[in-house]
Simulated assay, not measured.
Amino acid sequence: MLNLTHKNVHNYFKLNGYHLSGKQLSQMGYSYIKEGDVYERSIGEFLLDWFDDKDFIEMTTSGTTGLPKLVRLEKQAMIQSALATGDFFKLEPGNKALLCLPVQFIAGKMMLVRSFILGLELDVVSPSVEPLALNKKEYDFVAMVPLQVQNSIKALKKVKKLIIGGAKIDSALEEKLLPLKSEIYETYGMTETITHIAAKRVGERAFSILPNVKIAKDKRDCLVISVASISDKPIVTNDLIELINDNQFVFLGRIDNVINSGGVKLIPEQIEAKLTGKINTRFFVTGVPDSVLGEKLILVIEGEKLDFAPDFFDVLGKFEKPKEIVFVPKFKENENGKLLRKSSLVV
């Protein structure tokens, strides 16, 4: 496995049951672009990008950690990320994997790269909210977003190892996953880190970092990530963390979501965790300008108006109780299914 380049394809690799070389995959890329469905065209474009002579690919970030921007990812760094994933999750050549994520995003691209490099037998299906619904096969390794997992609970017995990314797993979904026999992990990462750099089993509090990753926190208590194969400079995030040790951290919330209400700093993600399971529709808390408090905490709920008992918010601390409840017909999301808080808010 030494001196791997992006032109290498492991001899155990299969795509939809067929052994294919890099040249054959490039040819398939042309076919997908010309004749494929929408999701296949994205795969085709990536296959042509991956097997060309450039040592990088370019893509746009999702915009959830800041404004969307064009980033250049070195193919060698993507290979190193694939090797780290294989090491962390103990993947072996010949393991059966499923690609059910859109390939225009980094998570879908990396399922292909991992398969090329690690020698996985990869099946590809159209991205949908129920990717296992019509599939009777069993898989060693699958990646999904929380919405797909939510709609696949009964079918997850077909999956030995499942990684979940793209958005945080809420406590209600986590409770459904805990009794399952599958190895299920929540992952942490972003486009700039070439997908996940840390993972935790469902039920665990702290994320553990993958091989060759270093972590620290800055003066704001935000996570700083160093991965030599990705960047010469540390990647500074806006994610508030509790640093457990050199290898583990607890995600607390986004610093740009923090609400300063009358001098008290409130982390929405922690308040939302306390309310999860009590409200049977999507919701979030946020701050809006207030002449007295500077910002006041409000609860935003998707759907029709609900009535709450006087003791409903007793699970929250004194300053965590919303000053107002706002109902919005439909939340807005980006293409990756992530909730857009600011654009969803209608006051």
Rank of each mutant, 00 (worst) to 15 (best):
F116N: 01
E35T: 11
F308V: 09
E295W: 11
S291Q: 15
C100T: 03
L156E: 02
G66I: 07
L162K: 05
A216K: 09
N245C: 14
V315W: 07
I117A: 09
V213M: 04
F141M: 05
G262Y: 12
D52F: 10
D290R: 09
K14P: 14
D55S: 12
S343H: 06
V142T: 13
K219A: 13
V326G: 00
K14C: 13
V129D: 08
K274Q: 11
V264S: 07
G203I: 08
E269N: 05
N8Q: 04
P322K: 10
Y188S: 12
A206H: 11
I301R: 01
D170E: 14
V300K: 12
Q104R: 14
L15W: 06
F312G: 06
Q24P: 01
I215W: 12
L177A: 07
K168M: 13
N212S: 15
V288D: 02
K136W: 04
Q150H: 01
V202D: 01
K217N: 10
L101S: 00
S26C: 08
E333Q: 15
M28Q: 09
T85L: 03
L91G: 01
Y12T: 10
R254M: 05
V202G: 01
L67T: 15
L316I: 00
T191W: 02
H6T: 06
K265N: 05
R205L: 11
I153F: 06
S126I: 08
L275Y: 01
P289N: 10
A309V: 14
R254L: 03
E302A: 09
S182T: 08
E335C: 14
Y30R: 08
L134H: 15
A199T: 02
G189C: 05
E242G: 05
G317S: 12
G262R: 14
F283S: 04
E74A: 12
G189L: 02
V285S: 07
K168Q: 13
V129W: 03
S229A: 13
V300S: 10
V288Y: 02
F319S: 06
L340S: 04
G119S: 02
A155E: 13
M59A: 06
E58C: 10
P268N: 04
F284M: 02
T5E: 07
P234V: 00
Q148M: 06
G189W: 00
N3H: 08
V224M: 03
